[in-house]
Design a protein around this nucleic acid. Structure first.
Lengths: 188, 188
DNA sequence: GCCATTTTTTTACAAATGTTAAAAAATGAG
DNA sequence: CTCATTTTTTAACATTTGTAAAAAAATGGC
């Protein structure tokens, strides 16, 4: 609970009353490895906060899956397309470990945004911060080779590489698993 | 002015009073080709709406520039990093044509967000929609070859390719200009 | 601990992209 | 229109990455 509150306030500091409103809608749940939180083609009706565990978001290609996001402890999870447009998303999100999450129904969240200006600005800040993170990742990929991206990942999120199988990481980096193996062989 | 109002309301429909507050802070300006709206390393103090013209956002590499965004008529322009964190951004934004813009001071925008819940939700929606657009672009790049991305650009924004020099488009697609030339030669 | 299954690495060859340099085409100022 | 400059295309070769298949290593259930 403490981690959740700290995270919420780090996005945008909330007045105690607003924080209470938000926390009142968040419920702790435990879900097993491989559980699909959001399924492509369906509307995601909840957002989540990861207290313990890992999630990955991916899209189905013709003959492959492409992972484009990992969520770790302290991250929020939502199907952007569902969350934002209320439409079926193109991505699926699944848990890669047995996990503990806080869930909030999308409906409740949207209602809070319309009722409380403090929370509306919190929601704005949340989207803005996600936007920056994604933009940095996007630009980073334009500048750097797969090899440099891997080195960076190894430096910034070493536990991510230990906890997630390399096939997923390869597609996250935009290369095949064979190429990632070659990169790893070079570094050693 | 009409385009601006239409665009604003398409993001999130505002009450007349809120719309008036927002428009009251936006001022029409004409700026020449090559004008730098935002300079890397500086804090961007304004956001813009493009009524007529083109802008591009880019980062400086060691020995090259990488363009990662184009703005056309109807787009909003801001240095995310400045806009969101109030810190110097890593990107520059410049005009590629003589342009007509509406400018709003960042300071005014932030004040409106804190005062008016309608506008706070508008700002939230704006960030969310930008987030989705970027995510779609990000995923698209993971799935598609440079050749497919170019074909898509040609289909969705043909005037963009006519108005912008190919070197910028090549870096936007994440390839060298030589590769883009090869792609274009194949398609013909 | 053992075996079946999954994941990762390695290999050989094919395809795509980068690099450098030069030629061709387009643009813009006078 | 002409000339200098910029932009785009083409060429030859080097490097990187992909593909397919097999080997090696790791994992998980019993």
């Amino acid at each position: 609970m403490d981690e959740l509150i700290k995270k919420i306030n780090s996005i945008y500091p909330l007045k105690p009353h607003s924080l209470k409103l938000l926390l009142g809608e968040m419920h702790k749940i435990a879900l097993p490895k491989n559980k699909v939180l959001v399924e492509a083609g369906h509307i995601g009706r909840s957002a989540y906060f990861i207290q313990k565990g890992i999630a990955r978001a991916y899209c189905e290609g013709r003959d492959n899956q492409i992972t484009f996001w990992f969520g770790l402890e302290g991250d929020f999870v939502f199907s952007y397309n569902s969350y934002i447009n209320g439409q079926p998303g193109y991505e699926s999100i699944e848990l890669l470990e047995n996990s503990t999450l806080y869930e909030i129904k999308d409906e409740a969240l949207q209602r809070l945004f319309l009722e409380n200006i403090d929370l509306a600005n919190w929601g704005r800040k949340l989207a803005e911060l996600e936007l920056i993170k994604l933009e940095e990742r996007y630009i980073s990929r334009l500048f750097k080779s797969a090899s440099e991206c891997y080195a960076e990942l190894l430096k910034n999120s070493p536990n991510l590489i230990q906890r997630i199988q390399l096939g997923y990481i390869a597609s996250y980096l935009g290369v095949t698993q064979v190429t990632l193996s070659r990169i790893r062989a070079e570094i050693k």
